[in-house]
Simulated scan of single mutants.
Amino acid sequence: MTTKPRIAVIVGTTRPTRWGVKPAEWIKGKIEQDGRMSADILDIASYDLPFFDEPASNRWMPSQNPQAVKWQRDLDQYDGFVFVVAEYNHSISGALKNAFDQAFNEWNRKPAAVVGYGGVGAARAVEHLRAIAVEVHMVNVPSAVHIAGGEFVRVHPLGGVEDDISAIEDKLNTNAMIDDLYWWTDALKTARAATRAEAA
């Protein structure tokens, strides 16, 4: 029996007032509803990661900080990732960049999908994230979900019109993103298994 690919939905902000948990829970539910993959939420706020201060990336040597090692071990269990991204001054949050920097091997040869939110759907932050993902040898999923403009205001607490993202689903690229995520996750999981078998 084939095990379903496992997806980690990563909440990309840590502020007490953040909204990102809401879209993280929503996209986790959509992935599980699709049925081809399982999904968990990884909240970087719960890891208490220090600013990266290792002698080098774990690409080159093992990390020493126990929080970083726990983060790496948790990431390693997953076959693909969905990053829930807010835009801070045209880029991703410092906390999310630091979370990327605290690992390398665990991102390697796995897909990176994105749910961005904000006035422009975090479009500029998503472009930065995609460049980072390439550097840690991930594959960017082409389709993304951008919760933007009027739809964002409708479901964000500042707008106060709706409390459920499902109210705007018809405006989002959700099915295309999940289809692309599954294709890349399945393909890369198969390829990684073949590489391990060849090396054994």
Results as ranks from 00 to 15, higher is better:
Gly35Asp: 10
Met37Asn: 06
Asp40Ala: 09
Ile44Trp: 04
Ile44Gly: 09
Ile44Val: 06
Ser46His: 15
Tyr47Lys: 08
Tyr47Phe: 13
Asp48Gly: 12
Pro50Arg: 04
Pro55His: 09
Arg59Ala: 13
Met61Ile: 10
Ser63Phe: 09
Ser63His: 10
Gln64Glu: 15
Asn65Met: 02
Pro66Glu: 11
Gln67Glu: 09
Ala68Tyr: 05
Val69Lys: 04
Trp71Val: 05
Asp74Phe: 02
Leu75Thr: 12
Leu75Tyr: 01
Leu75His: 09
Asp76Thr: 07
Gln77Phe: 05
Tyr78Gly: 00
Tyr78Leu: 06
Gly80Gln: 04
Phe81Gln: 01
Val82Ile: 07
Val82Asp: 00
Phe83Ala: 08
Val84Gln: 00
Val84Ala: 02
Val85Thr: 09
Val85Asp: 04
Tyr88Trp: 11
Asn89Leu: 14
His90Ala: 09
Gly94Tyr: 12
Ala95Cys: 02
Ala95Leu: 06
Leu96Glu: 03
Ala99Arg: 01
Gln102Cys: 13
Gln102Arg: 15
Ala103Asp: 01
Asn105Gln: 15
Asn105Ile: 13
Glu106Phe: 03
Trp107Val: 09
Asn108Cys: 14
Arg109Trp: 15
Lys110Ala: 13
Ala113Tyr: 04
Val114Asp: 00
Gly116Trp: 00
Tyr117Trp: 13
Tyr117Gln: 05
Tyr117Glu: 01
Gly118Tyr: 00
Gly119Ser: 12
Gly121Gln: 01
Gly121Leu: 02
Gly121His: 10
Arg124Tyr: 05
Glu127Asn: 15
His128Glu: 15
His128Trp: 06
His128Gly: 06
Leu129Cys: 05
Leu129Asp: 00
Arg130Thr: 02
Arg130Phe: 07
Ile132Met: 14
Val134Gly: 09
Glu135Ser: 12
Val136Tyr: 14
His137Val: 14
Met138Asn: 05
Met138Arg: 11
Ala144Ser: 12
Ile147Cys: 04
Ala148Ile: 03
Ala148Pro: 06
Gly149Tyr: 03
Gly150Met: 03
Val155Ser: 05
Val155Phe: 08
His156Ser: 11
His156Trp: 14
Pro157His: 07
Gly159Ala: 09
Gly159His: 00
Glu162Arg: 08
Asp163Met: 13
Asp163Leu: 15
Asp163Thr: 14
Ser166His: 07
Ser166Val: 09
Ala167His: 11
Lys171Leu: 07
Lys171Thr: 10
Ala176Thr: 07
Ile178Asn: 03
